[in-house]
Design a protein around this nucleic acid. Structure first.
Lengths: 155, 155
DNA sequence: CCCTTGACTTCGAGTTACTCGAATACTTTA
DNA sequence: TAAAGTATTCGAGTAACTCGAAGTCAAGGG
């Protein structure tokens, strides 16, 4: 049952097309040792396996969640150290899950704001706005207000 | 009907608490002239009005959507130029809406990935995993694969 | 009345995570 | 044989903060 099938191998360019990350970023992550097992061929060219892609995707997810490179590195190192680090890894993942959820909430909020602005421009273009205010005249922008905390004096 | 009511005024610290942006960032945005009408008191201290907060929020939304500072500045300048620039502003807003939606889709994707990892750690902690693989032994990370474009040879 | 505390200011240096381009090498195609 | 294409390393540049020093001012406590 020895497996001599050829494992899939990808160059940096391939990985770039597969993941959407730039070639520069992929090499940068490799230089930072965030993808631990990337091999090279006789000409010193990086060859990524499917496993390497899995590592890379994990790195990508953690970066997107806002984890700095240095801590992604720490996570990878913990993976390499074996099962003893699983509780810490699990904790980290749980934290980043929350970070990411918070981020998504914030992004949805800003998206709503942008949609309102878009709707405003649409109404202005059709000459349908009720009041003819203009951002400059009002020295402002349209839309809802921030919530002002109670303790702030607005005299 | 002259309005001599006191308009609400906020210091940098207030604005920081209201918006969640750091004091440094708020001053930075002001220095970059992204908040056009911020006033100062006799002691040269910045005083933000509610209108200023509206401008700031717009800046924030555009930044979150991925628009670089230089282009946020351009948008603000267009606002100051009057109604002639509305079509361009509307186009910009529409573009950033799409950017933001794409970003949210990507973030949700990575969130899913992180949730799977979390579930994996939960199952490992309870000793319930079917196969006893370990990231290091497998030189990989758990989870689904990337979609490999057809034209990439994996020999 | 003085002194500490705290919040404001400007300015300039430092940081993160890319991002880009140059110089070089090899290999495949014309 | 030459050009095109893709790879490598390395080092500099960039964006957007981020931080801290140094200075000023005003209010509050002893």
């Amino acid at each position: 049952m020895d497996q001599s099938f050829h494992e899939a191998k990808y160059t940096v360019k391939d990985v770039s097309e597969i993941t959407g990350l730039t070639k520069h970023t992929i090499r940068y992550y490799d230089d930072q040792q965030l993808i631990p097992f990337v091999s090279r061929d006789g000409r010193n060219i990086r060859l990524f396996s499917d496993h390497d892609l899995d590592w890379l995707r994990m790195v990508h997810s953690l970066r997107i969640s806002g984890l700095p490179i240095s801590e992604v590195k720490h996570y990878i190192d913990m993976c390499l150290q074996g099962d003893d680090t699983i509780p810490q890894r699990a904790e980290l993942i749980a934290k980043q899950e929350e970070e990411l959820e918070a981020k998504i909430r914030e992004y949805n909020l800003q998206l709503m704001h942008i949609k309102k602005k878009k709707a405003y421009y649409a109404s202005v273009s059709k000459g349908q706005q009720d009041d003819a205010w203009n951002p400059v005249n009002n020295k402002s922008e349209c839309g809802e207000k921030y919530e002002i905390p109670e303790h702030i004096m607005t005299h």
